[in-house]
Design a protein around this nucleic acid. Sequence first.
DNA 1: TCTTGAACTTCAAGTTACTTGAAGACCTAC
DNA 2: GTAGGTCTTCAAGTAACTTGAAGTTCAAGA
Lengths: 164, 164
Amino acid sequence: MPGLKIGTLAERTGTNTPTIRYYEKIGLLPRADRQDGGQRRYGDEDVKRLTLIRRCREFGFSIEQVRSLAALVEDPDRSCLEARDLAREHLMVVRAKLRELQALERGIASFVASCETACAGGPGPDCTILEDLAKPAGRANGAVGIGQRRDRRHARGSDMVGRA
Amino acid sequence: MPGLKIGTLAERTGTNTPTIRYYEKIGLLPRADRQDGGQRRYGDEDVKRLTLIRRCREFGFSIEQVRSLAALVEDPDRSCLEARDLAREHLMVVRAKLRELQALERGIASFVASCETACAGGPGPDCTILEDLAKPAGRANGAVGIGQRRDRRHARGSDMVGRA
DNA sequence: TCTTGAACTTCAAGTTACTTGAAGACCTAC
DNA sequence: GTAGGTCTTCAAGTAACTTGAAGTTCAAGA
């Protein structure tokens, strides 16, 4: 057994197997080595690369954005300054997201807290603290990023709030 | 002028106007009052509701999840305990996202920092610190949420990293 | 008052990033 | 050696918008 099967890679990276094949198809992952029967086999490099890809995707960067980052990681011939500038840009975006997410965390936490104290135990109609969550942010409006893209589908979370 | 036009609402909430119409169409926003000519007019309530919706969407909660939150906010007859439990669940999800995002922030920040010092000034091939970003997370694997959904399309950010 | 151009209207089709399904080959374990 | 899970490819479906077309409305200036 020279490497990991697609299912194992999927498990280790928190990805669905069809998604891995999809990434290979669109060139985000390199074509995997095949076994005699044609099944894909993966190594540590692949685990790393896919972990990075998933992380980036999870916070809403597009496939194309992730592609350029992955290229950066893989290509040491690239100008260091160029890489730094790209990374800096993304750092700003990530920090903006972080601020929003922190605001959301505070909002939901205080909602939960006031539920505990105010309604302690029974049903009650005076629990509209969630309104806080709807307050406009500190700065002008909601555009967080530099070049926001569409999509960002999937997210995790059961059934309710988010963001901030 | 009894209220805001759709363009103004869009601006205040960082939403595109077609998206607002789309939300109305799928019932995420209530049908807006119309002027004589049929144009939509909005009030403060709508600004609040849409702000909340956008915030939730931005951090990857699905339309259906947002719908249930919006209902929660709007419906004070609902059991306070039920609301609290929902909110709690989401708080956990948000906190998990927060941890991942913080890890990403550290990763990119240290990449930028090492670019500054190591390659200070010119191109150089020894800048592969981005590998840190690809390390598996502290805990088992990448599944952050309770009931992760598809999609989350759009994201902001110019062209590179994300997540963690 | 007229008119021009931005902002609005609806509806249909396109896009991204997957997911789901079908039909069949492979492979490990009993 | 065969059952059941995992794999293969390919096609079609889905979510959440976006983009475009074709026409209407409205505020402001000549």
